[in-house]
């Protein structure tokens, strides 16, 4: 565990807490894409299959439980909670995310570290996470103005994988065996997808103005 990896995990945790705060405090999920939340729930469920079989550390297990639990709780809230689901912008959140699931699954069966259930599911979760933010970014562009908590949620979610890239660079130079190329490439693609969001987020922060994404 190095500082970049820890910073990445904490940033990811903050993004989840900000989203939970937004939904709990405002009893609203306006501006949040249910499809991105569903994709993230699938990412964690397919990546943490070895939750009970491959114990690495208490920290590792706790974080996995937090990510699985929070993503399922958010999906449940947005689908079932009477007040929250009313604020869901169904007609704006129209990205066909099932194609993303299919494409990532096909790619995972072709490109993986070993053709075993665990490795194919792991590669699937890595590819899916790289594109999971697309429905959310499309929704933000369509809905124009972004409320603060939603903007912060997306910002921290994008920043966490950037820290992981620094972590992989660090591990590359400090450890012999390093073949995380699947996670590296997908992580770079994932972070690149946030590039324009980061740009407009920085502009709004610099001008102390509301975050506006061009339609």
């Amino acid at each position: 565990m190095n500082i970049f990896r820890f910073a990445g995990d904490m940033t990811h945790l903050i993004s989840v807490l900000v989203l939970l705060l937004k939904i709990y405090a405002t009893k609203s999920c306006s501006g949040i894409s249910l499809k991105t939340q569903e994709l993230y729930a699938l990412v964690f469920l397919s990546r943490y299959l070895d939750l009970f079989t491959n114990y690495i550390s208490l920290y590792n297990t706790l974080m996995k439980l937090v990510f699985i639990g929070s993503s399922l709780a958010i999906v449940w809230c947005m689908r079932m909670h009477h007040a929250v689901k009313r604020s869901y912008d169904k007609e704006v959140d129209t990205f066909r995310h099932y194609y993303l699931v299919l494409a990532c699954f096909v790619l995972a069966t072709l490109v993986n570290e070993q053709f075993t259930l665990r490795e194919v599911c792991w590669a699937f979760s890595i590819y899916l996470e790289a594109v999971a933010i697309l429905p959310q970014l499309v929704l933000l562009q369509r809905s124009g103005n972004v409320d603060n908590l939603t903007g912060q949620y997306v910002f921290f979610l994008g920043a966490y994988r950037a820290f992981y890239i620094l972590n992989w660079i660090y591990r590359y130079f400090t450890e012999q065996y390093f073949t995380r190329w699947i996670a590296c490439i997908a992580g770079i693609v994932q972070t690149a997808l946030y590039a324009d969001f980061f740009y407009y987020y920085f502009i709004s922060w610099k001008n102390n103005a509301k975050l506006q994404l061009p339609a």
């Binding site: 990896r5 995990d9 990811h12 070895d50 491959n54 690495i56 590792n60 974080m63 996995k64 990510f67 570290e113 070993q114 490795e119 792991w122 992981y164 972590n167 065996y177 390093f178 073949t179 995380r180 996670a183």
Partner: peptide, 10 residues
């Protein structure tokens, strides 16, 4: 072993 398989990251 050869290929990195412990998936110790989140």
């Amino acid at each position: 072993e050869g290929i990195y398989h412990d998936h110790d990251e989140l």
